[in-house]
Amino acid sequence: MKQPHGVILAGGLATRMGGGDKGLLRLGGGTLMSSVIARLAPQVDKFALNANGDPARFADLGLPVIADSIDGYAGPLAGVLAGLDWAAERGADCIVTAAADTPFFPCDLVPRLLLASEGMAAPLALAVTPDPKRGTARHPTFGLWPVTLRHDLRAALRSGVRKVVAWTDQHGGRTALFPDEAAFFNVNTPDDLARAEAMI
């Protein structure tokens, strides 16, 4: 399999942060987004940003900006679909997605997802971490997605499917275990941003 393309998911509304683009919030000497880019870039071939609205606000990143093709902020799966369509035009087999508000995700995200999907005709895997109550916690914005299933995903979204795991489970999606419970800490509130600053 060729090295996957990467897609940073930044298409949400960030309501708990008061709206706007969480990825552009300052963190350390850069932004949440620059932290995500630094971790994802070495792991993928090419990558793009999934975001809605005026793409000019991300011009200084120098990345292709791809919008959801499904109207109404349909959630992460709409961003995955946008990424799959973009990657298909470039001849890629798969994409790996990462959330724009999760600055410390593992530097071995892609290798572990690829390992988990070995032998699958349509490689599909989500990241999971240990969870004391549930056994494992899935992180549905961090996954490996096959271009071949994009039309199925489009049909599912148009029929009203919004939950990531509802769709991945239908296709025998696997999981890649990351042992650090805090590996996918994400910034949803101002308190989370302060905690992220302390973690640097």
Rank of each mutant, 00 (worst) to 15 (best):
V7G: 12
D131L: 02
L24F: 06
C94H: 13
M33W: 09
M1L: 11
C94R: 13
L77M: 15
L81C: 08
G12Y: 06
H5T: 01
L124D: 05
L157E: 02
V165L: 04
G18Q: 05
G53R: 09
I200R: 15
M199E: 09
G11M: 04
G91K: 07
V36G: 08
T102H: 03
D101E: 11
S159V: 03
G6N: 02
A166C: 03
K2N: 13
V36N: 09
L63D: 07
G18W: 04
P140W: 12
G172L: 07
Q3W: 00
D180Q: 11
M33F: 14
H151L: 12
G30S: 09
R158F: 00
A48Y: 02
A166G: 04
G29C: 02
N188M: 10
M199V: 01
A196P: 11
P132M: 01
P132H: 10
M120L: 14
A87P: 09
L9W: 00
D71Q: 15
A87H: 09
L114P: 02
A98K: 07
L124C: 09
P103E: 07
A87N: 07
L9T: 12
A156C: 06
L49A: 05
L113M: 07
L113C: 09
I66R: 10
H151G: 01
A99G: 14
A182H: 13
V147M: 09
G160S: 05
E197G: 13
D71N: 12
A14I: 03
I95P: 12
P123D: 11
E197S: 14
V187Y: 01
P103S: 10
L25E: 01
D45K: 08
L49I: 08
R195K: 15
T148M: 14
A182R: 13
S34Q: 15
M17R: 15
G135K: 03
T102C: 15
D131W: 04
G83I: 08
F104H: 13
D60P: 00
G30L: 07
I66C: 11
R26V: 13
P55T: 08
D169Q: 13
A92S: 14
P146T: 12
F178G: 09
A67K: 10
R16P: 04
A176G: 02
A182W: 00
G28L: 06
T136Q: 12
G20Q: 11
G79W: 04
A56P: 03
D101I: 06
R195A: 15
D101G: 04
R150N: 14
Q3D: 01
R39K: 13
M120S: 13
R174A: 06
F178V: 08
L61Y: 15
P190Y: 02
I95H: 06
G72T: 08
F185V: 04
R112Q: 14
S34I: 01
G30H: 03
R150Y: 00
L27F: 07
L25R: 15
L77D: 03
L113K: 12
A183C: 02
V187N: 05
D180S: 09
N50F: 00
T168C: 06
V128Q: 08
L32R: 07
L24N: 04
V110W: 05
L126N: 11
G91R: 12
R154T: 10
F104D: 11
N52G: 13
V36F: 03
T129Q: 03
R158Q: 15
G19L: 11
F142S: 05
L27K: 11
G83C: 06
D45A: 15
G20V: 09
K22A: 15
V164L: 01
L61H: 05
T168G: 02
